[in-house]
């Protein structure tokens, strides 16, 4: 089970992952605040018809963020 980490923004609609780490200073703080915690599972719920932003399910709620922001979150795909 030693699969490499992927940026969250590269997952496709409906795909799941486990958050492993956040990779950038202030933005990762904001993401932590919003609930992107190492160990949590995330699901890509929807990608906007124009390709960006995306909507993801973290814990029990939905968040919308731009792909650029999502790429700070490194996940292990499930």
């Amino acid at each position: 089970m030693n699969r490499s980490l992927l940026p969250l923004g590269e997952l496709k609609e409906g795909e799941k992952g486990i958050i492993r780490r956040l990779s950038q200073g202030d933005l990762s703080l904001k993401l932590l605040e919003m609930g992107f915690l190492p160990g949590e599972s995330v699901t890509i719920e929807k990608i906007a018809p124009l390709g960006d932003p995306i909507s993801v399910k973290v814990g029990s709620y939905l968040l919308s963020l731009r792909k650029e922001e999502a790429n700070v979150v490194m996940v292990q795909q499930q």
Binding site: D26, L27, K30, L31, M34, P53, S55, Y61, L62, L63, S64, L65, R66, E69
Partner: peptide
């Protein structure tokens, strides 16, 4: 200010 798009999609 630093701005992020990230926000909640409320139910």
């Amino acid at each position: 200010e630093k701005s992020y798009y990230i926000m909640e999609l409320p139910i």
